[in-house]
Amino acid sequence: MRWSVGLEAQGDRQVTHDEIVELADAVAPHGGIASGIGTDRYGAQIVVVAETREQALERGTATFRAAAATAGLPEFPIVRAEAVSEAEDDMAWET
C-alpha cells in the first residue's frame, strides 16, 4: 500500500533557500516536496510503500534522514511525523 508521509525537523538555526532546494532534489525521486525556507524547521512530504502505518513512518523517516544528509542539513530532532494511506486519502475525498 502507498502512504504519504509528512515529517518536520526543528533545530537551532534558520534553514537557507539553497538547503531546501537541495532537500527538494533529494526527495523528488520519492514523489516528495520540501519546505522550510527561512525558518528553524525543514520538512518533506514523501511517498513510501508499506503494509502498516508504523512501517510507513519507519521507511519515511529513514528516507527523510537520508535526504536531509544528502542536502547537507543538520540532523535536527523530528517534531512532526504523520502517515496517510492511499485508501484513507481516497475516503476523505469521498465525503
Rank of each mutant, 00 (worst) to 15 (best):
E75S: 11
M91T: 05
D12R: 08
V79E: 03
L73W: 09
V5K: 02
V21T: 13
S85A: 08
A56V: 08
E82L: 15
D18C: 01
Y42N: 08
A92G: 01
T95P: 14
L7G: 03
V47W: 00
A83H: 11
A50D: 05
D89A: 15
F64Y: 12
Q55H: 05
F64A: 09
S35T: 11
I33C: 03
Q10L: 11
H17G: 07
A62N: 13
D90F: 13
F76M: 08
A81L: 10
I46R: 00
W3L: 10
A56P: 08
Y42L: 08
A26F: 00
A67Y: 03
V48T: 07
R2M: 15
G36A: 08
E19D: 02
A50T: 02
E8Y: 09
V79N: 01
L7F: 05
V5M: 05
A62C: 04
I46D: 00
G72T: 04
S4D: 02
Q45E: 03
A34P: 07
F76N: 09
W3N: 02
D18I: 10
V21D: 02
E8I: 11
E51P: 01
Q55G: 09
A56N: 12
R2Q: 15
V48S: 04
A44D: 06
G72I: 12
A62I: 03
A26R: 00
F64K: 03
E94D: 09
H17I: 12
E75C: 02
R80D: 06
V79R: 02
P29F: 08
Q10M: 13
G43P: 10
A92W: 13
H30Y: 14
H17Q: 08
E51N: 11
A67H: 05
P77C: 12
R80F: 15
P74T: 12
V79Y: 02
Q45C: 06
G36D: 05
E54F: 13
R80Q: 13
E75N: 09
V27L: 01
G31D: 10
W3S: 03
V47Y: 02
A87S: 08
A26L: 06
T70Q: 14
A71N: 10
I37K: 01
G32V: 09
Q45S: 13
T16G: 01
R2G: 06
E8P: 00
M91H: 10
